Amino acid sequence: MRKKSFSDALFNLRARLPGLSARESAGARRPPKNLSMLLREWHKRIGLAACIFMLWLGASGVMLNQSPAWGLDAKRIDWPWLMSMYGLRAEAPRSGFASGTHWLAMANDSVVLDGTVFDTTLRAPIGMTESSSGGARQLYMASQQELVIATPAGNRIDELTSAMLPVRSIQRIGVTRDGGGVVIQGGDAFVSVDGGLSWKPSPTAGVQWSEPDDLSPTQRSIVLRFARPSVPLEQILIDLHSGRLFGHYGEYVIDVVGIAAVLLAISGVWIVVRANRRRAPMR
């Protein structure tokens, strides 16, 4: 009697809730999933999962393609947290060059003269000297390919490239014993007493050559302010586009996105072909 009452109650509940019985009957009649249905379902899932990465790959690809036009190749980023991902950190050089009360050092790509950044294209200086060549006291800073002339206050006067010098490559720079001439050597030595306007052969005896000198702790602390590492924005975009910025794990993620794109293409073609075949008999 108790069992019959429970059955009657269940029957009455289903009668009052027609949606429940409809869902049960629809579930009972649901056909098994075929290959096309499975492909459609996974096509949607893979598409949603890869959407963000595909958007980023597309956007970064456009930025890399337009990098020269947009100036991204010239812009540099020095965010500390980003530099730590590259394993870069600020480090002041231990040596530089000195002449009288003036000193010169390199801080990454910047030339620091007497504690301030000097506006010059000079790279990898090999020496600095002070001379009264040309009448006034002037600073002469040299790299292998150029000679930069500046005032003691740090104002650039001129930059002489190797095409304007008597030597193809400067090996060292110095000053004559009386300080009236600047001497450069690249195999043979030449001296100028008119501020670099003309040069003539010179003996090396008695020349005071510029040599690297250790920076003081105070000088190193000053240079450290300008020694923050930086990376071109274009390089950051390349590393983000390829996933290398995040190491091997980033590369694996991009590989998975590439595989997902291939699967999306294959499943998409399959779905279209199957749909066209079904429509063909109806035409």
Rank of each mutant, 00 (worst) to 15 (best):
A142R: 11
Q144A: 11
Q145F: 02
E146A: 07
V148R: 12
I149M: 06
A150C: 05
A153N: 14
G154V: 00
G154F: 04
D158H: 07
E159S: 13
E159L: 11
E159H: 03
L160S: 03
T161Q: 03
T161S: 15
S162T: 08
M164Y: 00
P166N: 10
P166W: 06
V167A: 00
S169T: 04
R172F: 05
G174C: 01
V175C: 08
V175P: 09
V175N: 05
D178C: 00
D178N: 09
G179Y: 02
G180I: 06
G181K: 13
G181R: 03
G181T: 06
V183P: 08
Q185C: 09
Q185N: 15
G186Y: 11
G187I: 02
A189V: 06
A189C: 11
F190W: 13
V191P: 03
V191L: 01
D194N: 11
G195A: 03
G196F: 06
L197I: 11
L197P: 02
K200E: 14
S202M: 00
S202T: 09
P203R: 08
T204R: 11
T204C: 12
A205D: 12
Q208C: 02
S210I: 00
S210P: 10
D213Y: 12
D214A: 15
S216D: 05
P217S: 02
T218H: 12
Q219I: 08
R220W: 09
R220I: 13
R220K: 15
S221P: 00
S221L: 13
V223P: 05
V223R: 12
V223H: 05
A227Y: 01
R228L: 07
S230V: 11
S230M: 04
V231T: 15
L233N: 09
E234S: 14
E234H: 06
Q235H: 13
Q235R: 15
I236P: 05
I236C: 12
I238F: 15
D239F: 07
L240R: 06
H241E: 10
R244M: 09
F246H: 04
F246C: 00
Y249L: 13
Y249G: 12
G250E: 09
E251P: 01
Y252D: 11
V253M: 09
I254R: 12
D255I: 01
V257N: 09
G258S: 13
G258M: 08
I259E: 04
I259D: 01
A260G: 01
L263F: 01
A265C: 01
I266Y: 03
I266G: 02
S267R: 11
V269W: 00
W270R: 04
W270A: 10
V272S: 10
V272P: 01
V273I: 15
V273Y: 10
R274N: 09
R274A: 15
R277Y: 03
R278A: 07
R279I: 10
